[in-house]
Amino acid sequence: MTSMSDLPPDLVVEILTRIPITSLRAVRSTCKSWNALTKKCNLGKAAATRQQQFVGFMTMSSKVCSVKLDFQGTRKDESEFVDLSINQVALFNQVEISKVIHCDGLLLCVTKDNSRLLLWNPYLGQTRWIEPRKYFYRPDHYALGYDTNRNHKILRFFDDFRGGNEFEIYHVRSSSWRVLDHITPGKLHHRSVTLKGNTYFFAREKMIEVLVNVSELKHFLLCFDFTRESFGQRLHLPFHIHGKETVTLSGVREEQLAVLYQKESFDMYKLEIWVTDKIDPNAVSWSKFLMVEMRPLTGFQFNQEAVSFAIDEEKKVVLVFDQEVYNPTKTILIQTVYIIGEDGYFKSMKIGENPNVWMPGEFPNRPKFSPPLVSSSYLPSLVQIN
Rank of each mutant, 00 (worst) to 15 (best):
P238T: 11
F92Q: 01
M1N: 08
P355Q: 11
S33N: 08
V325Q: 02
D181C: 10
N87M: 08
T227N: 13
L43D: 02
T331V: 11
T184S: 15
S33Y: 03
L7T: 00
E255T: 10
D343F: 08
Y137S: 10
E229I: 00
T22G: 02
E255Y: 04
R18I: 04
L221P: 02
F54V: 09
F239S: 11
L107E: 05
N303F: 03
K368L: 12
Y269I: 01
G73C: 13
L24F: 03
V64W: 08
S29R: 15
N165F: 07
R138I: 10
F158Q: 12
T336D: 07
K63S: 06
S265T: 12
I169M: 13
N303G: 05
D140N: 11
V318Q: 01
F161T: 08
P367K: 02
H236F: 05
E205L: 02
S176Y: 01
L271F: 03
M359F: 14
K330L: 15
K330Y: 14
K39F: 03
T127N: 07
V275C: 09
K278N: 14
P9T: 03
V210F: 14
R25H: 05
G243M: 09
E305P: 00
W358S: 15
S376I: 00
G232E: 10
Q304I: 01
L237V: 12
V284T: 01
L7A: 01
K350I: 10
F167P: 02
V13E: 13
A310P: 05
T184Y: 00
T331F: 09
D277Q: 15
I130V: 06
Q233N: 08
I169D: 04
E305T: 08
G56V: 01
N386G: 02
G163E: 07
V318H: 08
I351N: 06
K315H: 09
D280C: 07
T331D: 13
E293D: 13
A143G: 12
L43T: 02
P139Y: 03
K347M: 12
L260T: 01
K40A: 12
V193M: 04
L222V: 05
H171S: 15
V357H: 07
L119G: 01
N386S: 09
N93S: 08
R173E: 15
L217Y: 04
T17E: 15
Y261V: 03
N365Y: 15
A48T: 13
